[in-house]
Design a protein around this nucleic acid. Sequence first.
RNA 1: GGGGGCGUAGCUCAAUUGGUUAGAGCGCUGCCCUGUCACGGCAGAGGUUACGGGUUCGAGCCCCGCCGCUCCCGCCA
Length: 654
Amino acid sequence: MFAGDQGERKQPRARPAREDDAFHDGKLIRQRAKRNREPLFVLDSQWGLHETGPPMKRTHHCNELRPAHAGQLVTLTGWVHSRRDLGGVIFIDIRDREGRTQTVYDPSDLPAEVFDRAAALRSECVVAVTGLVRLRPAGTTNPKIATGEIEVVAQALEVLNTADVLPFPVDDPDAAGKVNEELRLKYRYLDLRRPEMTHNLRLRSKVATATRVFLDEQGFLEVETPTLFKSTPEGAREFVVPCRTNPGLFYALPQSPQQFKQILMVAGVEKYFQLARCYRDEDLRADRQPEFTQIDLEMSFIEREDIYTLIEGLLQRIWKTALNVDIPTPFKRLSFQEAMDRYGMDKPDTRFAMELADFTEVFRASAFKVFSGAVANGGVVKAINVKGFADATQGQIEAMTETARSFGAKGLAFIKIEDGEWKSPIVKFLTEAEKAALQTQLNLEEGDLVLFAADQWLVACEILGRIRLYAADILKQRGQLKIPADRFDFLWVVEFPLLSFDKENNRWYSSHHPFTAPVAEDIPLLKTDPKKVRGQHYDIVVNGVELGGGSIRIHQPDVQKTVFEEVLQIPPDLVKARFGYMLEAFRYGAPPHGGIALGFDRLIAILCGTPSIRDVIAFPKTAKGTCLMTESPGSVEPKQLRELYLELKAPKPQ
RNA sequence: GGGGGCGUAGCUCAAUUGGUUAGAGCGCUGCCCUGUCACGGCAGAGGUUACGGGUUCGAGCCCCGCCGCUCCCGCCA
């Protein structure tokens, strides 16, 4: 079936086989039509539209005809969306990517041959229909479709291709939306025909174009960077590509164009961007694919504020283009510290409050040792009030407790405010003063549920942050928390710690990546108190989704070397092997620079209102990284392995 | 790597405590129907209950294994 170019050229017209086919060789006919300026089509009784040249060419698309076109002879091409055979008259809706139009087949003024062909059509056959546009008779208009006031009275029908019975319906949005995703992925070309999916593809394209136009206006150059790169073991697991011409050596697919874009700054490009494909061999989620797209950009001679302004402008343009929505700028800014303190997340969803409150001082000397003990250990006591969730089930309390335990907590203290009293295993340990502090600060009312975390500051915040989202989900399901679908809360999260400590390996690692510049005044702390060093890193967050992040980079080779060797403790020879070309590049005049990358797939998913980025990627992979349509990844021939000097140790896949 | 959910006709789903020949709607096939747009009417075909074992007189249902899809944790500098 996949004949390739040559095969397709040999058969320019798909139509029922005819005995005199030899005579109708495509080339001959086309030449003759050109030479004699004959009409491309003639009507005849046997074939309806008789071809004298290339296939019938459409005059309009399927969402174009209106009452004003009445009386015109038109040709539509597309797929048979639905047919209604009333025995006498037949209605067939023709669909293309723009919409659909009803065509009518009336046996009283149509050759029997054409009528029979219309009667034999099945869903998703590909046809060309020529006929007269006319207003629909009074009372038969269809307000559900844009072309519902007219119909095309067929005079000729060419079947360009037939279709087998479909594995799942394409014409019914409700039914198709419920179809097992496995099936949709296997027959992705059918899934993509659905108007909902076509809409997503179209919106994605529009946003990509808007991005390019905006960044071009701002003076950016679009530069492509290699996808055959080399392995840089820090960070995400990489896809590795063997290299035949260099036996034993491997390329790696880039996790992002990070190093190339910084080197483009050294190269004097000043403003770079790319809709860059990135690859990460990590386990997947609804919002993660092994290959994904970033709006990646980098600028020279700028500060953080310049990035904020630029991205706010870009997102403003994108929202206007995609949704015709004006989003207000500048965006809110939260420090990492404040985001964790108030929301327990570095990507807070600020569309609802339910903020974390601090009770460290209240419980410093408490008789309840779980709280006072945590404070004595240098920790904090934090609490969250979930309004109206006092009726949480045992299972829900257990689920939240399990969350707390997964962060290392021993349990989850709670108080239910029910029937005018505080119901809790811990309430007997609380003094009146402590209760009063909770009452006031959390504004407690009948029906509330208070949840506590007592631990080191970061852990306590993270526990309640997770529980806050869990509780919000349940309140949403119960209709107690309503968030309008068109609400978008953008914010910048800034002032992240440059470094985090890895207890298991007893070493510091970069919170963002090792090229992130410290806040200038904190540079002396790098060697003395790494924990206190703030990075010039920023994340852009919308509705609790991390849309992207970036930083001002280190551009001084000595600072970069300090970070690699003294802070991250990477041996000098390894630094040279992995990043030597970068450090060298920085010796030849590196401008101060910084940039950001936005997750393009997530961005489109938000604009399309879908939780899964698979719905906005034409050919996505499953949670295990396979493609159900092409059955990739697949095996290779022994010959290919020999050429690559590779030998398999994996068990043979079935 | 760990945990949860799902897998029954082409599709979406039922099937009582483990009990007769596994059902329905849509789709499909045939016939009928001249204004439908979820067209309508009549008739019909269609099943290795994902797969492999086990328990049982008897398994779609219980147990073990395995495959696939999905969600979450870990992971994603």
